[in-house]
Amino acid sequence: MMIKSLLAVFLAAILTENYVLTKFLGICPFLGVSKKFGTAVGMSVAVTVVMMIATAVTFPLYTLVLVPLDLAYLQTIVFILVIAALVQLVEIVLKRYIPALYRALGIYLPLITTNCAVLGITILVLEKSAADASYTFLHAMVNAFGTGVGYLVAMVLFAGVRERLESADVPRSLKGLPITLISAAIVALSFLGFGGLVEGLLGGGV
């Protein structure tokens, strides 16, 4: 039962609750770095790592420290500082111990602090766990991982679309950002098709 509900959380995070295409979180990097396949993958992996570490820290921090101390209203300010500090820490650790990975992901790290998808996931998993008592820390972690994978899926799909756009003959006023946004609309539209899929696959009740 536990595994089934975790799987449901994971699949929903990728398909039906895709942060970029259905929740509009993390749009700036989605539009900014999705021009090339390589950078799209690099950014998504960096976002996934930071999302998981951030959730792993903020979830217990909120439930075990802020709530007992009656400081829940400090959520926003504490979370953003935790994320900023974590991003710095990840950068330093990567630079010191895994320079190869640092060269691959390092350039995206400073941009992640202001990526709203990261702050978004830390707040949204807490909302979910407040609404549903069976939503545990494990669910939150799976949700963060699924969201990261969903981010990767959206970025990679969209990088493919944009590579095709490069060679298309677009009306002058639509060149650049407008046509990119309109293509994003079509990609988002196709994700609507996944609605109800997760419930259908796992036989409802999740």
């Binding site: 295409l21 259905t22 929740k23 509009f24 006023s173 639509l174 060149k175 950002l177 407008p178 046509i179 990119t180 946004l181 309109i182 994003a184 609309a185 079509i186 988002a188 539209l189 609507l192």
Partner: peptide, 17 residues
């Protein structure tokens, strides 16, 4: 729906351009 958001925003920026 979300798709419409991207669409309208794209057209508005095209208009601003």
């Amino acid at each position: 729906l979300p798709a419409g958001g991207f669409f309208v925003f794209g057209l508005l920026i095209a208009l601003a351009n």
